[in-house]
């Protein structure tokens, strides 16, 4: 499989975007809607499936597209070719606050398992697939864990994490217990399982779920501190327009402060 070797640069701190430099003839695939800007010479093309060389024939393409549908992605990917004679850049922006993780698939064995919809962009030749976990417990209680996205290839891929990123290297046999929503990606060598918290009291009153994910080494795992669902939940809860309760910042004037703060409309 011919992989395009791309150079990249990540800009920003908490709301990042990645700029990918394409040599003439090189290409990158991006998640539909993630493109931010592109320079002269870059042609954009929307294709059915993921554009990797593995998918031969109409049936293969349909299958690939179907898999993308299962993981909640759009049926189409956008491919960006450099048709010009000099290097050109295309930028992809993260869709919510967090960090962009560059992963060189060749250094981790060619495969990365990641959370559905965390994929941002990749060098052409990386194939997007789905990975099923066959453990019954993961299927029933894993939340997002049952069906995950699989990136195959040996080029660069960029995935996106919400909040602050944590990279953990697990030694053989070392385990880490994680909130199920906080897992962004891991190497396939890592064992992923769902474990019952075991304490109903903490599940009901502690605010954590009934289950958490157990990651067992060896291998590397990427964790996010703020899953999008959690952020969205807090925003809706605090938004008066959406039926939430307004929270003041502890003004001495209390309720009166709301009248004086100048943004009454």
């Amino acid at each position: 499989m011919a992989m395009d070797v791309v150079d990249y640069e990540i800009f920003g701190n908490e709301m990042q975007y990645v700029e990918v430099e394409l040599d003439p003839g090189e290409a990158a695939i991006g998640e539909a809607g993630a493109m931010m800007m592109m320079q002269d010479g870059i042609q954009m093309d929307t294709i059915f499936g993921d554009g990797s060389a593995q998918q031969g024939g109409l049936f293969g393409k349909l299958l690939g597209a179907g898999k993308r549908l299962v993981t909640g992605e759009s049926l189409f990917t956008t491919i960006f070719h450099n048709e010009g004679r000099s290097k050109a850049r295309v930028a992809f922006a993260a869709l919510y606050p967090g960090k962009i993780i560059p992963v060189d698939l060749s250094t981790i064995g060619g495969t990365l398992i990641c959370q559905k919809d965390s994929f941002l962009c990749a060098a052409r030749g990386v194939s997007l697939g789905i990975a099923f976990n066959r453990k019954l417990g993961v299927g029933l209680f894993g939340g997002e864990g049952f069906i995950m996205q699989k990136l195959d290839g040996d080029g660069l891929a960029f995935v996106h994490a919400g909040g602050t990123l944590a990279v953990k290297d697990l030694a053989p046999g070392e385990t880490l217990r994680v909130d199920t929503g906080c897992v962004v990606a891991f190497q396939p060598s890592v064992d992923f399982d769902i474990q019952y918290v075991g304490k109903l009291k903490s599940a009901l009153f502690g605010g954590e779920g009934l289950f958490f994910a157990t990651l067992r080494g060896p291998g590397r795992v990427w964790l996010q501190s703020l899953p999008l669902s959690r952020l969205a939940n807090r925003i809706v809860m605090a938004a008066p327009a959406a039926g939430g309760s307004r929270r003041d910042e502890g003004s001495l004037l209390g309720g009166l402060g709301g009248l004086l703060d100048g943004d009454n409309d």
Binding site: T107, I108, G109, P172, S189, P218, G219
Partner: peptide
């Protein structure tokens, strides 16, 4: 195969 162990890269060695 892929080997993990002391002195090897944490992401493993082909």
């Amino acid at each position: 195969a892929r080997l993990f162990g002391p002195g090897l890269p944490p992401a493993g060695q082909t």
